[in-house]
Design a protein around this nucleic acid. Structure first.
Lengths: 131, 131
DNA sequence: CGAGATTTGTGCGTATGTATT
DNA sequence: AAATACATACGCACAAATCTC
């Protein structure tokens, strides 16, 4: 088949259902087995589709349970100290474990003037500029 | 085998070589075939290891060529306007295409008081607080 | 310029282990 | 205890892009 790969096509359809609200946060998606049957693909292909959504922070695999639409937490305000710099990047597996963040969630990394580094999961914090 | 999965182990070794500078940005890594032979694993397993690094923004597959250590661009300073909020999240495939960002690169999303939204790839921008 | 080798991209099948229900 | 569902890992085949000669 020319054109878009199968797993991207499947991912796009599920993503659409999530972003339009047809699939609500916390809701269980069709299992890998169901996706296989629905789209007539191998399990690996169905899985790759959901893997894309996971890397975007939209869904999660829950072992023994199924695939669920991720519940997005509230973001608390974060103040950037004078002279500090802030970047965003993806965590290593160790950092994901340490800060309890799921796949597809970036980190805010704040570096203070004295080289001190602070890390904040980007799904629970936001920057707000007083004005 | 109990303990760490094989692909995570392989990824950790390569990641170490990258972060310590033994593998320099722009340098070509061993091909999938070489990784298979080196670690005695299936191609899929070697590939998953590199997939982890790609999701962290450290490496890239280049079709027909090989696997390369990603060159990290310089980050330009970004000023957050008064009353604006900034979040970081992963892009959709469409956004990756539109803003020309690779796998594993988050987006800065700035929302102004009038609801206007601006997007900045997080590998090319950073926030700096005057002081 | 072309032909072949190399290397990644996609897709399928199978087996076994582990966690949850 | 049994069924369900995801996690890891092996194998194979062919397509598409790149590189080398």
């Amino acid at each position: 088949m020319p054109g878009e790969p199968t797993y991207q096509h499947i991912a796009a359809r599920i993503r659409h259902d999530i972003t339009t609200g047809r699939l609500a946060p916390g809701q269980t998606l069709p299992s890998e087995t169901m996706l296989q049957q629905t789209y007539g693909v191998a399990r690996q292909t169905a899985r790759r589709a959901v893997d894309l959504l996971r890397a975007e922070g939209l869904a999660d695999f829950e072992r023994g349970h199924g695939i669920v639409v991720r519940i997005q937490p509230e973001r608390a305000d974060l103040a950037l100290p004078a002279g500090a710099t802030l970047i965003a990047r993806m965590p290593t597996p160790e950092e994901r474990d340490e800060h309890n963040v799921r796949e597809g969630v970036p980190l805010f990394v704040v570096t203070l003037p004295d080289e001190t580094v602070q890390v904040y999961p980007a799904d629970r914090w936001q920057m707000r500029q007083a004005g």
